[in-house]
């Protein structure tokens, strides 16, 4: 005789037991993630690297160094390195470059990429706790008194020629051009750039060149007033700026003038604000050093030195030209 009820009940109880065990394990597996390491515990994509490279510079070069850092960061995995940008967050910190390099020494990195401005003197080369030189790559400015693995800089003479070519192209060979000059005369790079630009423009006879000496540290308001008075009054077709700050100030001044006349701006430099004016079409062209490429090249030279003991001592940085509306 078959006990159908009992048989069914037994099968059902077995099935429910299996379900219960499954639910139990599901319960555990479902809850375990809540007690295991949570997402906030750390970056899952983070990884340990073998080498440590510091990008060091002063606060006023933060934007430029940020670009270099970005370039170096892009190739860091290739060299199994962690790249860090060590720049004071604002000018208010007023930290000297020597202190920044001391900091770099204390962290004992495998290499340093530093922007040492031309005004920086008596800079001591960074050494580790054992007293050994830390491989140093300098960018933009070469310092013969500091032992450097490589120097990656700009050929300002070539840059001046490029700006002249771009200016002529904008004016189509005819027009008036004003060069904003705010830098000191004892800056050799700036002087080289200015000389090269003026000499090159002299080749274009249809272009009338004016140099507007705005002097140093006049402040933004004074700068804008002079732009309005001098450039707005004269029939200037193109303004050429040789620093990032001059380019931005010129763009701001000309944007506010609104005298119904279109004045082009060819500037030199980079940064978010300059890019914004470029995108808005106020700045016509923006020439800049290809700083991310400098970062990549710096890493390449640094690790060539670390691995083989030698590297190229001098490398020319490329120049990028960004035109309004091209992006």
């Amino acid at each position: 005789m078959k006990f159908t009820l009992g048989h069914s009940a037994r099968i059902i109880s077995i099935v429910i037991s299996i379900v219960m065990v499954a639910v139990f394990f599901f319960y555990i597996f479902y809850l375990v993630p809540y007690v295991s390491d949570t997402a906030s515990a750390g970056d899952d994509t983070a990884e340990n690297r073998k080498y440590h490279v510091l990008v060091v510079g002063k606060a006023e070069n933060e934007s430029f160094l940020q670009q270099i850092y970005t370039g170096a960061q892009q190739v860091s995995k290739k060299y199994d390195a962690v790249v860090e940008l060590h720049v004071p967050e604002s000018k208010a910190e007023n930290m000297s470059l020597q202190v920044l390099l001391e900091y770099a020494s204390f962290t004992n990195p495998d290499g340093i990429i530093a922007y040492i401005g031309e005004s920086e003197t008596n800079i001591k080369a960074p050494v580790n706790i054992d007293g050994k030189q830390i491989p140093l790559i300098t960018v933009v400015q070469y310092h013969p008194d500091i032992p450097q693995v490589s120097f990656i800089g700009t050929n300002y003479s070539e840059l001046g020629r490029k700006i002249a070519v771009e200016s002529s192209a904008y004016l189509k060979g005819h027009g008036s051009l004003a060069i904003i000059n705010t830098s000191s005369s004892n800056n050799p790079n700036y002087s080289t750039l200015m000389n090269s630009l003026i000499n090159s423009l002299e080749e274009y006879t249809g272009i009338k060149t004016t140099i507007s000496d705005f002097g140093l540290s006049q402040g933004a308001t004074a700068f804008e007033r002079r732009v309005e008075n001098e450039i707005g009054a004269d029939n200037i077709d193109l303004v050429v700026c040789l620093t990032t700050e001059d380019t931005i100030h010129a763009a701001q001044s000309l944007a506010d003038m609104n005298n119904g006349r279109r004045i082009g701006i060819i500037g030199f430099g980079e940064g978010d604000i300059a890019d914004m004016y470029l995108n808005r079409g106020i700045i016509t062209e923006l020439l800049s050093i290809d700083s991310p490429k400098i970062g990549e090249t710096s890493m390449s030279e640094l690790f060539e030195f670390i691995r083989y003991g030698y590297a190229n001592s001098y490398i020319n940085a490329d120049v990028r030209i960004k035109k309004a509306g091209s992006r």
Partner: peptide, 11 residues
């Protein structure tokens, strides 16, 4: 942390 890391905190 004894070696460089891409994680901000660990670095």
């Amino acid at each position: 942390q004894s070696v460089p890391s891409t994680d901000t905190v660990l670095q």
